[in-house]
Write a protein that binds this DNA or RNA. Structure first.
Lengths: 242, 242
DNA sequence: CGGTAGCGGATGTCCCATGTCCCCTGAGCG
DNA sequence: CGCTCAGGGGACATGGGACATCCGCTACCG
């Protein structure tokens, strides 16, 4: 029985305590009205303020960093971070790879979600698109076609194309989510070999999407996107079957 | 210049090393073909296998736990976890609360994404829905109406309604994402007070959605959902303005 | 034969020492 | 007078050890 021990403070499960600690740190940020870019107290100050050891604190800190809540700069300090979904991507990539060992279920679900997002929002994006942004999209298509003609893979240009497509919406969360899906897809892509794809055909599909967007034909744009996703789904199914 | 030092192992940035360590752990799981529920090696074994100290390892382990990749049970061991999006929710809740201090931009973006998902996928879900599932949806609506009549808030029933709506798709990723959005929304809801909402009107909106779904009218279902989201958007704007 | 106390192993928390990195400052130079 | 770069100091990174806590299993005792 700790007589003078001040801190046997309501022992919950370890897991709950860690989560509480993370919440405390986030509350502290909100309470002090820190903005993205502002510095947090040093590790030692936080240890004292929150009444935990440095290691325990650091474990929570690392989690918050992975969640994109804070940014840790070695040797300088910790700061409230701008958006960052890297960690989510890693988690999803892991799940997707795990599922590819079986039936690729999670990978296919991911394509479904991405399709709903892209097909569902392409219309709104087309309402807001500027001539300049449209030109940027075509540029991506051209780059894909060039790479396809040269027989080189063009994952970057492909990713670029889809980013630009939804840039007009000015929705960072959406772009982040799509970015995550892209990262997962890219991983699956290299994982499954996928060398046998028809580059020219893929480039042509994107050209079709561009044409529909440029013409302002929302229904056709959504439809062309859907065809694109059907191709992706087929490739995943093939990879799992093999 | 470390002469006899065996391990000056290609110093990258600290952040990169931590990420690499996480990847290594995930690779190890995939290499050993561990399934969800299987036990990982103990901390000490991993320390040796990966050549890092226990503290460093634990920081990565905690991150993986937060990402829902592994599950840590105090005093027993570590296991490959089933799906878990809790961490993502916490991160998003933080972002949303942070943004509410300004213009509520991220909160509104989140509603946009959710709307795209729900409006975009309601059609596919209606293709697959069974009579039983339909009855479950109506049950949720009835519960909401009862609670509205009693003047009580019905966040749970509301959340239930939306879950059931997309249950037929059998897409865990989607349900998880929507669950995350719900959690964030619920937090915002309590955060902004939001006591002044018209319970009966909200219940009626859901009744309209149910009616359209039961009638098999996809366009109307999507439209009713959109109206629902417009209401949410308005409430967020009001909360920020005040 | 059943319940329980003890044991072994694993994780949780913490401290300390040392290494590493980054920004800031000030002296030196053009 | 302004620019550049080396050094200082502060802060984070890493590793190891000690002790506390928790869980499941087993062997002892009633």
């Amino acid at each position: 029985m700790p007589s003078s021990n001040i801190v046997p403070p309501a022992r919950f499960s370890a897991q709950a305590r860690l989560r509480a600690l993370q919440s405390d740190i986030m509350e502290l940020i909100l309470d002090r009205e820190l903005e993205p870019g502002d510095a947090l107290p040093t590790e030692n100050e936080l240890c004292i303020a929150l009444g935990v050891g440095r290691n325990t604190l650091r474990e929570s800190l690392k989690v918050l960093q992975a969640l994109g809540v804070i940014e840790i700069r070695h040797g300088f300090g910790m700061f409230v971070a701008p958006s960052n979904f890297e960690a989510l991507a890693d988690g999803l990539i892991f799940r997707a790879r795990l599922s590819l060992r079986h039936h690729g279920l999670e990978a296919l679900q991911l394509v479904d979600v991405r399709q709903a997002l892209e097909s569902g929002l392409i219309g709104s994006s087309m309402d807001l698109i500027t001539a300049e942004q449209l030109a940027g999209i075509e540029e991506s298509v051209v780059r894909m076609e060039e790479l396809a003609a040269a027989g080189e893979s063009f994952v970057d240009a492909d990713s670029d194309f889809h980013s630009r497509l939804f840039e007009p919406l000015n929705n960072e969360l959406l772009l982040n989510l799509l970015g995550v899906f892209w990262k997962v897809y890219r991983r699956i892509h290299t994982e499954t070999g996928a060398g046998a794809e028809d580059l020219a055909a893929v480039a042509a599909l994107h050209r079709n999407v561009y044409t529909a967007v440029a013409a302002g034909d929302k229904a056709r744009a959504a439809q062309e996107l859907t065809r694109h996703f059907d191709g992706i789904r087929r490739r995943i199914s093939d990879a799992v079957a093999e």
